[in-house]
C-alpha cells in the first residue's frame, strides 16, 4: 500500500472538494492532483474520469457517528470501505463527532464531551472501522461546534492526540474549524496548532464561514475569511501538510471567484496554484 503521504505523492498539493454542482469546474482545473468526495454519494462518471487522469479521490464520511456510545453500524462501514475500493483510495476520512443517539438522527456533526469515556467510545469505533478498510488509512477530523459540553477532563489537544495515539489514525486538520472554535471560545487558534501533533496530518481542510448573533458559523457557503488564510500560513510555517483543500458546499460563486479563492489558499500555503 502506498504510504499515508498518498494524498500528495511528491510535492504538497492544493485541491478542492468534489461536489456534483461544481463537477465541471473541478474537472477543468489543470493542476488538480487530489480531491475529496462525500462517501455516501454515488460515484459519477466525472469522478471515474478524474481517477483515470490520476487524480486521487479521498472518500469523506459524515454518517458513521464514530464518537457515538453505540457500536458503529457495520453496514455503513462496509459502504465506506466499498467506496474506497472503487476509488482505489489509500486514504479515507471521517470525523471526531457523533450524529445520532437514542434512535434520533441529528442531521449534523455534534461534538463529544472531552472525557475518557468518550475517548474510549471513539477509539472502539475507529478500530472497528479500520479493521474493515482493507488497509486504507483513516484520517480523523476534529469538528467545529458552537458549544462545548459542560464538564471536560481533557483539553481539546489532549483529546484529539489521545484518540490518534490509541488508533494510529491520521489527522485531517480543518483550519477553519480551528479558527471557528477558537473565536467562539475566545481562545488562541495558534496555541491549539502548537499543541496538536501536526506531523500526523494527512491533509488539511480550508473553508469559509459567517457570523450570526455574535457566533462564527463554519458554513462552507461563504468565502474563506482572511483570518483563516492567515492560519493556513501559520500552519505551513510550522509543518508541511501533504495537501490542503477548499471545501465549498453551496451558494457556489462564479468560476473566476472560486478560482481566486483557490489561488488565495495556494498563496497562503506557499504552494503552486492549480488554476
Amino acid at each position: 500500500m502506498a504510504e499515508a503521504a498518498a494524498v500528495a505523492e511528491t510535492q504538497p498539493a492544493v485541491g478542492i472538494g468534489w461536489r456534483p454542482e461544481i463537477a465541471g469546474f473541478v474537472s477543468a482545473l489543470p493542476g488538480l492532483r487530489f480531491t475529496e468526495v462525500a462517501a455516501e454519494s454515488s460515484i459519477s462518471d466525472s469522478l471515474v474520469d478524474l481517477r483515470a487522469r490520476g487524480v486521487q479521490v479521498v472518500p469523506h464520511g459524515v454518517r458513521l457517528s464514530l464518537g457515538g456510545a453505540d457500536p458503529v453500524d457495520p453496514l455503513r462501514v462496509a459502504a465506506l470501505a466499498s467506496c474506497a475500493r472503487r476509488l482505489e483510495a489509500p486514504l479515507v476520512s471521517e470525523h471526531i463527532a457523533f450524529v445520532r443517539a437514542g434512535g434520533r438522527e441529528a442531521g449534523h456533526l455534534l461534538p463529544l464531551p472531552r472525557t475518557w469515556e468518550a475517548v474510549d467510545a471513539m477509539v472502539r469505533n475507529v478500530k472497528r472501522t479500520q479493521a474493515a478498510l482493507d488497509g486504507a488509512e483513516l484520517a480523523l477530523e476534529p469538528i467545529a461546534a458552537l458549544f462545548d459540553w459542560p464538564s471536560c477532563e481533557l483539553t481539546e489537544a489532549q483529546f484529539i492526540t489521545e484518540i490518534l495515539d490509541r488508533t494510529g489514525a491520521k489527522l485531517l486538520l480543518d483550519v477553519a474549524n480551528v479558527y471557528a472554535n477558537a473565536r467562539n471560545r475566545g481562545t488562541s487558534p495558534l496555541q491549539l496548532l502548537d499543541e496538536l501533533p501536526l506531523e500526523r496530518i494527512a491533509y488539511v481542510h480550508v473553508a469559509g464561514g459567517a457570523e450570526h448573533d455574535g457566533l462564527y458559523h463554519d458554513t462552507h457557503t461563504d468565502p474563506t475569511p482572511p483570518e483563516v488564510l492567515d492560519l493556513v500560513s501559520e500552519l505551513c510555517a510550522r509543518c508541511t501538510p501533504p495537501a490542503l483543500m477548499l471545501e465549498r458546499d453551496g451558494h457556489y460563486p462564479p468560476a473566476d471567484v472560486l478560482r481566486k479563492e483557490l489561488d488565495a489558499v495556494a498563496d497562503a500555503a506557499g504552494l503552486e496554484r492549480i488554476t
Partner: peptide, 17 residues
C-alpha cells in the same frame, strides 16, 4: 444505557426533538 449514551441522547433530543 451508559452515561455517554444517555447524555448524547439528551443532547440530540434538545437539538432536534
Amino acid at each position: 444505557m451508559s452515561d455517554l449514551a444517555s447524555q448524547q441522547a439528551a443532547l440530540v433530543s434538545a437539538l432536534v426533538g
